[in-house]
Design a protein around this nucleic acid. Structure first.
Length: 300
DNA sequence: GCCT
DNA sequence: CAGTACG
DNA sequence: AGGCCGTTACTG
C-alpha cells in the first residue's frame, strides 16, 4: 500500500492544526483550514464528539511489522516491505536471515536508544562539546545547532550542528571539518559513523551516533559544513521543519525560481518531469532575510 | 490524504 | 541506479 | 487527473 502522500497530508494537517490560535471545536471550523479537507475534518469531528477515532483502534499486524522494520536507521519502506514479503516478522528473523548493511546493523544495535527523544539540556551539552573541539582546531569556526533545537523544542529527535567559517581570510570550514570529526571520535563522543565519505567538500553532511561520557543513551547527531556565503540558505534549510521547507520550495517553483540548501535562484525553466533545464541565476543565499524578501514571504 |  | 536520509 | 522539495547528499 502506498501511503506516502497520505502520510504527508496528515502531517500537513497536524502542522496546520498546531498553528491555530484557538482550539478547533467543529467540522465547520476544521474544514476552513488550508490543508484540512473533508476526510480529515470528519475525523477531527469524530474525535471532538466521541473522544477517539474508531479507525485508529486497530492497525493490521502487517502495518505494525513494516512500521517497526522501517524504524531501523537505513531501512525504508521498500526494504521493510521486502522483508515482510519474505515472511520475516521480528528483528530475530531479520538478524538470522538478512545480510544487513553496515548502517542497518548500527541502526539495529542502537534501536531502542535512537527511538528516545533527547532532552534539550543534553543537546546543549553535546553541542557545547562539539563547539569546544571545533574552536580548538580553528577559533574562527562557527557552530550553530539547528533543527528542532533552534526552533525551541523541549526535546529533539537528534542533534543537528551546522559548521561554517567566515572566509574573508581565504580559509573555510571544510578542511577543519574532517579534523573535527576525528577529534570527536578520539574523544569518544562520536561512537558510530552512519556516513563514511571523507572527502574535503565545500558542503558535506556527516551522520553519526554520539554519546556523552557517562551518558545513558546513544544519540543521533548530524554535522554539516557549509560555505559562509551560503549560510542563510543553509540555516533556512536545516532549521526546517520539512513541511515548511517543502512549502517554501514549492512556492519558489511556482515563481519560476528554485530554492535549495545553497540558495534561491531565479529564471528557472523546468521540463515536464519537473527537472530544471536551466541553471537559473543565483539571487539570494547569504541571509535568510534576503531569501524571504526575494521570495516575497513576510519575514517570520 | 489535499489542492488545482 | 534505487533506496534512504536530512530539514 | 495528476502533482505533491531538492538536478539536496550519501550508500551499496
Amino acid at each position: 500500500m502506498n501511503d506516502e502522500w497520505r502520510t504527508i497530508s496528515y502531517r500537513k494537517a497536524i502542522s496546520a492544526l498546531k498553528r491555530q490560535k484557538k482550539p478547533i471545536t467543529s467540522y465547520q471550523e476544521a474544514i476552513k483550514i488550508r490543508g484540512i479537507g473533508d476526510r480529515t475534518a470528519e475525523k477531527i469531528a469524530e474525535i471532538i464528539e466521541t473522544g477517539n477515532l474508531r479507525r485508529l483502534q486497530h492497525f493490521s499486524e502487517d502495518d505494525e511489522v513494516i512500521k517497526k522494520f522501517s524504524d531501523i536507521w537505513g531501512v525504508g519502506s521498500a526494504i521493510a516491505m521486502k522483508w515482510y514479503a519474505k515472511g520475516y516478522r521480528t528483528f530475530d528473523d531479520i538478524i538470522q536471515n538478512v545480510k544487513l548493511t553496515r548502517v542497518q546493523r548500527i541502526g539495529l544495535e542502537c534501536f531502542d536508544d535512537l527511538r528516545e527523544r533527547i532532552p534539550r539540556d543534553e543537546v546543549t551539552e553535546i553541542s557545547k562539546r562539539v563547539e569546544e573541539a571545533a574552536c580548538r582546531i580553528d577559533p574562527k569556526l562557527l557552530c550553530i545547532t539547528v533543527g528542532s533545537y533552534i526552533r525551541g523544542k523541549p526535546t529533539c529527535g537528534d542533534i543537528d550542528i551546522l559548521i561554517t567559517r567566515n572566509n574573508t581570510d581565504g580559509k573555510t570550514s571544510s578542511g577543519p571539518f574532517l579534523k573535527l570529526l576525528n577529534t570527536l571520535r578520539e574523544q569518544g563522543l562520536l561512537t558510530h559513523d552512519l556516513t563514511k565519505h571523507q572527502e574535503e567538500n565545500a558542503t558535506s553532511r556527516y551522520f553519526g551516533i554520539c554519546k556523552l561520557p557517562g551518558g545513558e543513551k546513544y544519540r543521533r547527531i548530524d554535522l554539516f559544513t557549509v560555505p559562509f556565503n551560503e549560510l542563510g540558505a543553509a540555516l533556512l534549510s536545516f532549521t526546517g521543519n520539512d513541511i515548511f521547507n517543502r512549502s517554501m520550495r514549492l512556492l519558489a517553483r511556482k515563481k519560476k525560481m528554485k530554492l535549495n540548501n545553497h540558495g534561491l535562484y531565479k529564471n528557472i525553466s523546468r521540463g515536464r518531469g519537473g527537472d530544471s533545464l536551466t541553471e537559473g541565476t543565483l539571487i539570494a543565499q547569504r541571509t535568510e532575510r534576503e531569501i524571504f524578501d526575494a521570495l516575497g514571504v513576510p519575514w517570520r
